[in-house]
Every structure is written in structure tokens, then in C-alpha cells.
Simulated assay, not measured.
Amino acid sequence: MKKQMVKRSAFAFMAVAALASGCQKAENNSETATQEQNNTSEKKYLSQPLVSDIYTADPSAHVFNGKIYIYPSHDIEAGTPENDNGDHFDMRDYHVFSMDSVGGKITDHGVALDIKDIPWAGRQLWAPDAAHKNGTYYLYFPVKDKQDIFRIGVATSTSPSGPFKPQPEPIPGSFSIDPAVFTDTDGTSYMYFGGIWGGQLQRWQTGKYDSTAAPEPSGNVAALTPKMAKLSSDMLTFDGPVKDVVLLDKEGKKIMADDHDKRFFEAAWVHKYNGKYYFSYSTGDTHFINYAIGDSPAGPFTYQGVLLNPVEGWTNHHSIAEFKGKWYLFYHDTQLSGKTHLRNIKMTELKHRSDGTIETINPML
């Protein structure tokens, strides 16, 4: 498993190198590789880290009370061995960050939720998201339970910066990772979620958890779909069944499992622009953030292209938010550490073309 991760990590690095002249080839010696990664004088990044005193990743951004609030993962050096299931991403708490203006000071509001305060949690607090309704702020988070199965929990606060108090149990019927909550203009909220490989989505194909399932389907069969569910009015449970989010190619056919440049891997996000719904996601081992467009928050969504090309590092995870009339992409890379599991969040402007498509963003210049 570790050998496979190293191979795929090398692929990701080469993909970035194709985008950025002057990127050096990774060396086997970890110390040398880290020095090369940190040698920013020979690399040109589209944007710089928003936070540099701790490692942050998977930024979910929202505008609350006229400010940008960012809810990222908090990467740490946990000493957990690296593998394809992502056990080395062994996060244990969340920090919340805010900005009054783009390019301005970013404030760290401290620990918003700690794994030790979640009664049902076992290990690995992965990428969270947040929402607001009726004066309450909600933090949605995936964490493995004490049986090592990913579930999705929710915590509440009267402040967008927390601290957040978790519910005593995970959301009934929830599973896998990467919750992303979208609230439509009619006030209805939906959660999108799922991630394959370490995210365990492939283990739920029969409707029950199967620890023996393959990492993902292969061959000329439909790819696994992300999931969605309508949220209840109190934002604490699902209001109805979990449904598939259908992704189609431009010919109207389902995206196939072997099409790793297009198939869903993890990191679902939804935003609405000019009456259309944009579903964006990571392709995982090919390292793209793609997007698809639909006429309904439930889809189907038709693939349009690449939103963000591969970043430095293995994972690619994002969010999209509008602030003062402009749209922004929030993402991460490994500029500060050169290690796949110690990442730093960034942001850059995102531009919709007149026909509704999105200009592809290159994270390396």
C-alpha cells in the first residue's frame, strides 16, 4: 500500500512539474526532497499560504456576518505510517479562521472542536464544513467511530468561530467523509458527501458496510457516485433517504469507473451561479478538481471540465464562495512542508465565463 502511495505521489509531482517550469524532480532521500519542496525561489506559486504557523487543509469557506470564515482540517505530524487509506492524515481538532477582507489579516480563533470531546469518536477528524440557520452555526465533520467506520457528526455554536458542542451521536444514516452543506435560495439545505479508498464509500455499495470491498470498481462499469441528503429543518438529521448524485459526461452517459480523469473520488462542493448548480469534486489519484453543472441541487450534473489543475502534494480539496461581488476558490497545497500530509490553505479568484463555464486555474505559474 505504501509503495502504491509513493508511486501515485510521484505522478502528482510530475503533473505539477508539467505546469511549472523550474520544478525539480523529487529525490528518494526524504531530507533532500523536503529541502527541494521548500526552495520556493525556484517555484512560482499562484498564491501564498493563508496560515503558516500550523498546517491546514481542505478549506471550507463561507461568508457569515460580512466576513470570510474558513473551516479547514488541522494537519499534524502524528507519526502514523503512510498508506493509501490515508491513516497518516490523523487529525485531532479543528481551528476556525476569519478574514475581514481579501488579502487582509487572517485571525485564528483557536480550537473549535477537539476529538476528545466527541463521545462516539475513535480517530481521524477529516475535512469539515459549516452552515448557519436561525441564529445557530453548525459544524459538520467526518470521524471514524470506535469500530473504525467513518460517520458524519454535527456540532453547534452561537458563534461562527465556535467553540462547537457536538451531538452525542453521529447523524443517523450518515457514512463516509467530506460533508459539504449547500443552502438554496429557498432556505432548503442539502448535504453532499462521500470519498472512496480511505473514505470508505466503496464499502457501502450494498447499503451495508462491507470491510472487504475493493478500493473502487474497475472496468467498463459506472463509477461510484457521491451521495446527498436533504437536511431537516433543525439541521441535525437527514430529512429523507440518502440519494446518488449522478454525474454524466457531455454525451449524457454516466462517467465510467476507469475514467480516473473524470470520475468522482472525494471533496464534493456545490455553489449556485446564475440559476445553475455547480457540483465540483476531486478526482483523487489524478489530482484534478473538476466541475459539472445541473438544473437542480439533486442533479444530474453534466461534466464541464477542470476547475483546478493538480497542486503540489497528493491531495486536492477545495471550496468556492462569493464575497463582495467576486468569487473565490479556496484550496491547499504543500508549499510549506513538502510532505503530503502537512498542507497549507490558499485562496485565489475564480472566474465564470459569460457562457457559465469556469476558467481553469493553474496553481503553479
Rank of each mutant, 00 (worst) to 15 (best):
M1T: 09
M1V: 10
V6N: 08
V6D: 15
F11L: 15
A12W: 02
V16L: 07
A18F: 12
A18V: 14
A18I: 12
L19K: 01
G22W: 02
Q24P: 01
K25E: 14
N28Q: 04
S30Y: 07
T34H: 01
T34A: 13
T40L: 09
S41W: 09
E42P: 00
K43M: 15
Q48D: 15
L50I: 15
V51H: 08
T56V: 12
D58S: 05
D58I: 05
Y69Q: 08
Y69I: 06
Y69K: 06
I70L: 12
Y71D: 11
P72C: 09
P72G: 10
A78P: 10
E82M: 11
H88G: 05
V96K: 03
F97N: 10
S101M: 01
S101R: 03
T107V: 15
D108V: 02
V111S: 06
K116C: 01
K116Y: 00
D117A: 06
D117L: 02
I118M: 07
W120T: 09
A121F: 03
G122F: 10
P128L: 03
H132Y: 11
G135I: 10
T136A: 04
Y137T: 06
K146R: 13
D148S: 10
S157L: 10
P163D: 02
F164P: 03
K165S: 14
P166H: 09
F175L: 09
F175V: 08
S176I: 04
D178N: 06
V181E: 08
G195K: 09
R203A: 13
G207C: 05
Y209M: 06
P215Q: 06
S218D: 14
A222E: 15
M228K: 12
K230Y: 04
M235Q: 13
T237M: 07
D239Q: 12
V245C: 03
D249I: 06
K253V: 01
K253R: 06
M256A: 11
M256P: 02
E266L: 04
E266A: 04
Y278D: 04
F288C: 00
I289D: 03
N290Q: 08
Y291H: 01
Y291R: 00
G294M: 02
G294E: 05
A298G: 05
T302K: 05
T302D: 07
Y303M: 02
Q304T: 03
V306Y: 05
L307H: 04
N309Y: 09
G313C: 11
H317C: 11
A321F: 04
K324W: 07
K326L: 07
K326H: 13
L329I: 14
D333K: 00
S337N: 09
L342Q: 11
I345G: 11
K346L: 13
M347R: 08
E349V: 02
S354C: 00
D355F: 01
N362H: 13
L365K: 14
